[in-house]
Nucleic acid binder design. Structure first.
Ligand SMILES: [Mn+2]
Ligand SMILES: [Mn+2]
Ligand SMILES: [Zn+2]
Ligand SMILES: [Zn+2]
Lengths: 142, 142
DNA sequence: ATGTTTATGAAAATCACTTTCAATGTTCTT
DNA sequence: AAGAACATTGAAAGTGATTTTCATAAACAT
């Protein structure tokens, strides 16, 4: 799994004529070892604890690179901070978000997905992506 | 319809001990006459064209007031700008967004809504709100 | 080893708001 | 109608998240 992601990045770097750096490797390691929905701030603090010399801007830039390379995806929940999650080949899911403690639960529902496709089709839309988030209180918070 | 919204606002203002002002009336008129999903920037520019003396901050504050009064709702699409839409009693809908021209189409799908409730319940979540947006190309753009 | 090009860190800039504050307007009390 | 009490306003400053700038440092092809 981690091997696959590392290869995705090094292939992308090679393909685009970019350069492999210690910072990118470090940030990738922390990203791969992280919770599935981290904000830049959270990731930066973790990275920073071990590598105090890595800059804020580099973390931002590197996460964007991961998105381009296809190993991360940006998500925006209702809290105004961009989060990044792991992308796995052929997998899609949506989110339940606890408005009290912030817990995020992933779910897949093929029936909903299919109905979304039908909605798009019935309005003549060529669907590219969709976003579906359910906000409420998780079991621990009610 | 517009009468209803105006009354909603004046009732809210009375109930909270706030004050009725020329600015609030003007902004409400423009909001009610507007497209259903306007950004503050767009609304401000329209208002500004007729009333060059109304400030940016007032438009921001007033739209927040409309939300509190229950006649507008904030929505965030993927473009980083808050938009405000009209709220109508007992009505709920989700959105199709054209990634090319920005067109927004509203839709309701009770089956999807019901499945969302079931997903939440199956994970022990007490649902508060949800957000569902389908992004793609509208009929004109493909 | 050198040269060319990309990456980095720190600081400044940007973007979309939000807050501050002195001046002004609205409503209440007389 | 006048004054007091309080809310609202516009302009400008402040925020918080993110992005850009730019001089310096690393990569890596030759
Ligand atoms: Mn996820
Ligand atoms: Mn709508
Ligand atoms: Zn919770
Ligand atoms: Zn379109």
């Amino acid at each position: 799994m981690k091997r696959v992601k590392k290869k995705l990045l090094s292939d992308f770097i090679a393909r685009k004529g970019l350069k492999s750096t210690r910072q990118r490797d470090t940030i990738l390691d922390f990203f791969l070892a992280s919770d599935r929905h981290m904000s830049i701030e959270e990731l930066y603090l973790k990275v920073r604890a071990k590598h105090p010399n890595i800059g804020y801007a580099t973390v931002y830039r590197t996460l964007k690179l991961f998105v381009e390379a296809g190993l991360a995806r940006e998500i925006q929940f209702a809290d105004g901070q961009t989060r990044y999650e792991h992308v796995n080949e052929g997998e899609h899911h949506d989110h339940l978000v606890c408005t009290h403690c912030g817990t995020i639960v992933e779910f897949e529902n093929p029936v909903i997905e299919k109905l979304q496709d039908e909605v798009a089709k019935s309005h003549g839309f060529l669907i590219e992506t969709h976003k579906m988030e359910i906000y409420g209180l998780c079991p621990k918070c009610h």
